[in-house]
Design a binder for these strands. Structure first.
Lengths: 220, 220
DNA sequence: GGCGTACGTTACTGACCGGTAACACCCATG
DNA sequence: CATGGGTGTTACCGGTCAGTAACGTACGCC
């Protein structure tokens, strides 16, 4: 009756199918306002459609939530691998690179924590389909950091990997309270560097000029 | 009509007034299941009373939430001060003590994160009365850690304090996903010790035997 | 006894929630 | 032209939410 389809979507999602518009809108709203705070009606209307079309594309809200988190996981690993790639073979530099990438996201304007960790707070029922996604992702993250720590030559790689994970999780968590510029996340990178300096063996004859490997002040 | 008052409260809150029973029940339910997941009806009936008595004691659910968090803040600082007291004058030992206390709580069975941080995830509206409580508490925590770092002689005390805060926040946050025994929180203390060793000047003639100050493996 | 305080009980409001039914319409494909 | 898939529209369901009104009752205190 009133199918505009060219306008109506205030968000710039012109050519996308309804399902994708709903999906993108849901991810944004869930992240910004919280999962429980956003109803399917709000998602649908914000996506320029209605609730009926929502349920033609998704079996339930819970399913949509799980799928949004799965997409988040995939994007997260894409960024992760992209950060590692330029420093193949230098595990310590890879750790620093993944920290830089991660913290840049966490610090960015409008960031409000980790979508997965936030979902873990909001969705406590063990039966929720999102919980498996969350646990799997965090476990994988932990394993990857421990592996990197081992490759970097840490004596207790598991402890170092866990320490790095705690710094990362703390960084995203504090962003729900503190500013991105003046908050404690601004010191996460120097903390990681200090930890790496303390737990890793001294640099063993790198190929390049050995004096400037860890750029800024490494003392704190 | 049916006022039992001696039984009816399955939880052992026999002699307490209705207001206190509601308050305690609400804190427990909010923490365990999440704030948005718990309605006033559930709180009232779990406290052995009804919704009408709820609204005779509290102006609104949001008010109750804020008051629960304020109580959490007060208890938190009580534990904090109790942890510091035995080591007056030894700031580094105080930091370790507060970490031990904090992590013991975070690791304990049935722990599921920090009530304040969890509330920050669930209650995103800036106007919510809980947000001020949360921000104030986390800021105070940051300041105290920075002060302790300075007293311990850190060159960059602000950075060290922030690093410690990130470790603490990460520890509570990961407890919503990982087990208390096998999770990364188990390595938070060694991480903190490594950080302290790296950022603090070497021990300057302590009174006691200097060889065993940092008990376990300090190298991480 | 009178009275006030604290509390229980029932019933209700209006809003919102997740989810569904039925129907109309556009448009591409055959 | 006919068909069918994708979509918009309206109306509805049962349930839950936060919050309120009105009334009844137990008990302590003067």
């Amino acid at each position: 009756m009133k199918q505009d389809k060219v306008s109506a979507d205030c968000n710039q999602q012109g050519g996308l199918r309804v399902r994708d518009r709903i999906f993108n809108t849901a991810r944004e709203l869930f992240y910004r306002q919280g999962i429980r705070a956003v109803g399917v009606d709000a998602i649908a209307s914000e996506a320029g459609t209605n609730k009926m079309s929502f349920y033609r594309s998704f079996a339930s809200k819970d399913d949509l939530v799980a799928e949004c988190l799965r997409a988040q996981v995939a994007e997260s690993w894409t960024r992760w691998d992209a950060a590692l790639a330029p420093h193949e073979g230098d595990a310590r530099r890879q750790i620093e690179a993944v920290f830089e990438m991660f913290l840049a996201k966490a610090c960015s304007e409008n960031a409000c924590g980790c979508p997965l960790s936030n979902a873990a707070v909001e969705l406590r029922e063990e039966s929720h389909p999102a919980r498996e996604v969350i646990r799997e992702h965090k476990t994988e993250m932990r394993n990857r950091l421990r592996t990197l720590a081992k490759q970097a030559g840490a004596a207790d790689a598991d402890a170092l990997g866990d320490a790095l994970l705690l710094l990362l999780e703390g960084s995203t968590a504090t962003r729900l309270v503190f500013d991105g510029r003046n908050g404690p996340v601004g010191n996460a990178l120097v903390a990681a560097r200090a930890l790496l300096d303390a737990c890793l063996p001294p640099v063993k004859a790198p190929r390049k000029s050995p004096g400037k490997s860890s750029g800024r002040r490494a003392g704190a």
